[in-house]
Design a binder for these strands. Structure first.
Length: 358
DNA sequence: TCTGGGGTCCTAGGACCC
DNA sequence: TCTGGGGTCCTAGGACCC
């Protein structure tokens, strides 16, 4: 018996949940995002497969989606509560499978760790369990670690199962662009390209020292291994504990005065603080995010004098940090993040790194 | 074409201490 | 007076993910 990592990913999760409670939408292009108003500043959370046929996808500005969408397209507002409930049902169904360890990755995806001789059979059981409990479909990636399982899922969509291991890694991924790797975005793709590395195979064959010089001792080694599909294989079911909470808003009209900015900062800071206070955890740090118009984002942070449970003190710290913002520039987004005392200091829960250690 | 909101982790460099 | 390394903490900023 061998140990396998399965990655379960819901198919068009948010759109599927919406169609489930409004069956008359079945077969129509459904686009969920923002407040459901395609004239506002917002992006697409999920588009149904019917909408994707028109070139509409996640992360696309709603205004662009509206331009591409056919006349019968339906725009819906994001309903976090409904997706959280559906997500809970999905995870419960998967957790009930025999002898699996489940690690939640997001609303609509998770890893399963399982020891078996037939991982595809487990994958099919997982799909059946989710479908039976929620009437929702999912795809499953089978791998010998998290990186390969996660990437495999894309080849299984929709409603399928795909296996990616050390044996077929280069055959499947070798000629793909580095951007297709989990953890490589457009910035890193560019920096790699500057070294003549554009494909996954080239990344695997690259000199590790070159990557360490470019990205640092940790990320350099990580990216090099990623080229060969190397990654952590431990599935950890330790309950997730938030390190911080933040609130941010994109304003439909840019903020132009210092008074507007301060009022907005006070509101966001109070909300972020209350999210932490609801968990009964003191706040140790404040972070600010500002997007100046048209699209230039800056961040800053400051440690508080000591851990505090006093909202006014936190709000004052956010406002003080806000004084460092450029008063000459229009603001289109503000965000305030409240960082809490480390979870392991609070309740003894070990932190689970997203990337893990190789 | 015009770009959300909620998160986590990593790196560089300065200050300070021994 | 001018000088070494090593370690830790902090700030600022960036990149990526769902």
């Amino acid at each position: 018996m061998a140990y396998w990592v399965l990655h379960v990913d819901m198919d068009q999760f948010i759109a599927a949940v919406e169609v489930l409670r409004r069956p008359e939408l079945a077969g129509l292009p459904v686009i969920v995002g923002g407040r459901g108003d395609p004239t506002e500043r917002a992006v697409v959370s999920t588009a149904s497969y019917e909408a994707r046929a028109f070139g509409i996808g996640s992360g696309m500005p709603l205004k662009i989606a509206a331009r591409k969408a056919p006349a019968d397209a339906v725009f819906l507002p994001v309903d976090h509560e409904a997706y959280a409930v559906a997500s809970g049902e999905v995870m419960a169904a998967l957790r009930a499978l025999p002898d699996v360890v489940l690690e939640v990755v997001g609303w609509d995806e998770c890893f399963l760790g399982v020891t078996t001789d037939d991982p595809e059979a487990v994958a099919r059981s997982a799909q059946a369990a989710v479908l039976g409990a929620t009437a929702l479909h999912c795809s499953v990636g089978v791998g010998d670690n998290k990186v390969r399982a996660k990437i495999a899922t894309e080849f299984g969509k929709p409603r399928g199962v795909f296996r990616l291991t050390e044996d077929n890694w280069f055959e499947v991924m070798g000629d793909k662009p580095t951007r297709d790797l989990w953890g490589v975005g457009t910035k890193v793709q560019k920096r790699l390209a500057a070294h003549g590395i554009t494909s996954v195979r080239e990344l695997a064959d690259a000199d590790e020292q070159t990557l360490v010089t470019e990205f640092g001792p940790r990320m350099g080694v990580w990216y090099h291994g990623l080229g060969s599909g190397i990654g952590p294989s431990t599935v950890d079911d330790t309950p997730w504990v938030a390190r911080s909470h933040s609130r941010e808003t994109t304003y439909q009209e840019n903020l132009t005065t210092a008074e507007q900015v301060e009022a907005a900062l006070r509101e966001l800071a109070a909300q972020a603080f209350d999210d932490c206070a609801a968990e009964g955890r003191p706040v140790v740090r404040v972070h600010l995010k500002v997007r100046y118009a048209p699209f230039d984002t800056k961040t800053s942070g400051r440690k508080l004098p000591g851990p505090t449970g006093d909202r006014d003190e936190f709000v004052a710290a956010a406002v003080a940090l806000g004084a460092t913002l450029d008063p000459e520039r229009e603001v289109r987004l503000l965000g305030v993040r409240a960082e809490m005392t480390m979870p392991d200091e609070v309740d003894g829960v070990e932190r689970t790194p997203v990337r893990g250690r190789i």
